[in-house]
Write a protein that binds this DNA or RNA. Structure first.
Length: 574
RNA sequence: CGGGACGUGGCUCAGUCUGGUAGAGCACAGCGUUCGGGACGCUGGGGUCGGAGGUUCAAAUCCUCUCGUCCCGACCA
């Protein structure tokens, strides 16, 4: 491609609308332009990079035995009513009526459509397993679209759905997808981790999120430095204290005046106790009903764990009024002894003895409270936020908190959709069995954004070679010089003959502009033809990622660089 | 939906407090000089000051309403 003919409107200054690196750079580098909130046009370079990711996804999905198809984007409400998601999905589902007053929606995901397709066309165990995928534009009317392609309303996604006859087959399919995803993100040249994700009500370890590691990521990950354990913060576990054989002597419960001491810090200072010897009582509103949560004084509650334990849709920390209304105690003096609302405890509390708690009376606390003797709890479970001081639940190793961007998610669905939509097959005994399903998503457009988020410097993007819009950019530094121009044109043609993807900067611009633009758009290799060629017959090959360059004669440039590019792609699994 | 910020040529912004009839830099067009890290000079085109209503002799500026954008929280590929 010739730069002079390309729609590539680069920006010298940072657009005011963009705060996040990838968003800023994609706008500046002329990859995308916003049409309206959360909806973007992909310009030629942005699309080229997206196509690269798509191609890798296709190759690996096909290799894993999945088949590509394409499902409709407009979907009838009836189908969504069958799965009960028409009611459940909420305002993210963009709904509209057509001229016949029929209700429809824009597909935010395709479980309904694919299940409908399969139930009408697959009837026997002989046709299983089957795994179908598409790469398509999705629409989700996000509450707050932001960060450019990172969280758009309209975005490109690869979604796959698998149908298996048995649980064990479904687990094999899940494992295949796990491996395919690992290969996909490896081949994209990204640094990533697969983490255990929150499975909500289904449970089990059959949900993984694939996270691109980047400081600017929206999610917090917990990673073990010593084994392969990695988890989303929401689900992260840690090694629990071992039950000590020798129970310390239980001291008598003692009520003590603590005037005006409400916060943990104030109480421990006043009483001279350690926060590790204090149990705080937090009140949460779980679907509108109050629940008290006990945990050690220096810990924090992980609301998602609480939500899953209580099996509710929403938990929210109660405000002072809600606390008082439900317990009759002003916040700050709450405790489990004689409390009027249900109590759950973080499992750590079950291994504590003789600790301080609120006395459920203004200006009083209890010393030496003990579970079972002084109060009961409904349930004890892991409810706390993990900290870097915690230890790995698998190996006891050191944990590290890091940030990541979710680019893929694999999930074992089980039979929830096949049962709701009555999608089943006949087994070898002639029995009607619901399909066991799985779904597997990759945010294709988000992957490009995440790649930029992970690979950039002050000058611009540093694309991993496999997903760069072009592999090499040839700079003709003097379009008026016939010799230089002829050399640049020769390089361009020769790269094409080698099946490489060159971009020739043949614009009548000053060298500085060409260097700046080349760095900004992040093409991995740059070949410069300029004064050094005119004087010594040398061209310069420079790698964008480490800025290292070599000079070599014109006729050696193409074979040398083509070899480098092939080797690099091969080393990345391409 | 709650909290905050902001809307002025294509882009980045000044001007708003204290009302007096629109500016700068970049970009764009032309000419000349320049030419391996976003050059310089001269000339030129381009703006319903987000929109509506109001106050006033006079509104980008003050008031009311409205639309849109961005950032922080709940959602997710």
């Amino acid at each position: 491609m010739r730069y002079s003919q390309l729609l590539l409107p680069t920006l010298k200054e940072n657009p005011a609308e963009a705060e996040v690196v990838s968003h800023r750079l994609m706008l500046r580098a002329g990859f995308i332009r916003k049409l309206t909130s959360g909806i973007y046009s992909y310009l030629p370079l942005g699309l080229a990079s997206i196509r690269k990711v798509e191609q890798i996804v296709r190759e690996e999905m096909n290799k894993a035995g999945a088949q590509e198809l394409l499902l409709p984007m407009v979907q009838p409400a009836d189908l969504w009513k069958e799965s009960a998601r028409w009611e459940k999905y909420g305002p993210e589902l963009l709904r509209f009526t057509d001229r016949h007053n029929r209700e429809n929606c824009l597909g935010p995901t395709h479980e309904e459509v694919i299940t409908d397709l399969v139930r009408k066309n697959v009837h026997s165990y002989r046709n299983l397993p089957i795994n179908l995928y598409q790469i398509q534009t999705k629409f989700r009317d996000e509450i707050r679209p932001r960060f450019g392609l990172m969280r758009g309303r309209e975005f490109i996604m690869k979604d796959a759905y698998s149908f298996d006859a048995t649980e064990s087959d479904a687990e094999i399919t899940y494992q295949k997808m796990y491996e395919a995803y690992t290969r996909i993100f490896t081949r994209c040249g990204l640094s990533f981790r697969a983490v255990e994700a929150d499975t909500g009500t289904i449970g089990g370890s059959f949900s993984h999120e694939f996270m691109v590691l980047a400081d600017t990521g929206e999610d917090t990950l917990v990673i073990c430095k010593e084994c392969s354990y990695a988890s989303n913060m929401e689900k992260a576990r840690c090694k629990l204290p071992v039950k000590s054989a020798d129970r310390p002597e239980l001291l008598p419960l003692e009520k003590i005046e603590t005037p005006g001491k409400r916060k943990v810090d104030a109480v421990i200072e006043f009483l001279g106790v350690s926060p590790k010897n204090l149990v705080k009582t937090m009140v949460y509103m779980a679907d509108g009903k109050p629940v008290a949560v006990l945990l050690r004084g220096d810990r924090e509650v992980q609301p998602v764990k609480l939500k899953n334990l209580l099996n509710v849709v929403d938990v929210e920390l109660a405000d002072d009024k809600q606390v008082f209304d439900s317990t009759g105690v002003p916040s700050g003096y709450l405790g489990p002894v004689g409390i009027k609302i249900p109590v759950v405890a973080d499992s750590e509390v079950t291994e504590m003895y003789n600790y301080t708690v609120g006395a459920n009376e203004k200006n009083y606390h209890f010393l030496n409270a003990n579970l079972d003797r002084d109060f009961k709890v409904m349930q004890a479970a892991d409810l706390r936020m993990i900290t870097p001081e915690d230890r790995c639940p698998e190996c006891g190793g050191k944990l590290e908190l890091t940030r990541g961007i979710e680019v893929g998610h694999i999930f074992k669905l089980g039979t929830s959709y096949s049962v709701a939509l009555k999608a089943g097959f006949l087994d070898d005994q002639g029995r009607e069995i619901p399909f066991i399903m799985g779904c597997y998503g990759i945010g294709v457009s988000r992957t490009v954004a995440a790649a930029i988020e992970q690979n950039h410097d002050k000058d611009g993007i540093k694309f991993p070679l496999p997903i760069a819009p072009f592999q090499v950019i040839i700079l003709n530094l003097s379009t008026k010089d016939e010799k230089i121009t002829r050399a640049a044109e020769t390089l361009y043609e020769d790269f094409k003959k080698e099946s490489m993807e060159p971009l020739l900067d043949d614009r009548d611009e000053r060298p500085g502009i060409k260097f700046k633009d080349a760095d900004l758009i992040g093409i991995p290799y740059r070949v410069t033809v300029g004064r050094r060629f005119a004087e010594k017959g040398l061209v310069e090959i420079r790698k964008r990622s480490d800025k290292k360059s070599i000079d070599l004669p014109l006729d050696e440039a193409v074979p040398k660089l083509s070899g480098m590019i092939r080797d690099e792609l091969k080393s990345m699994g391409g």
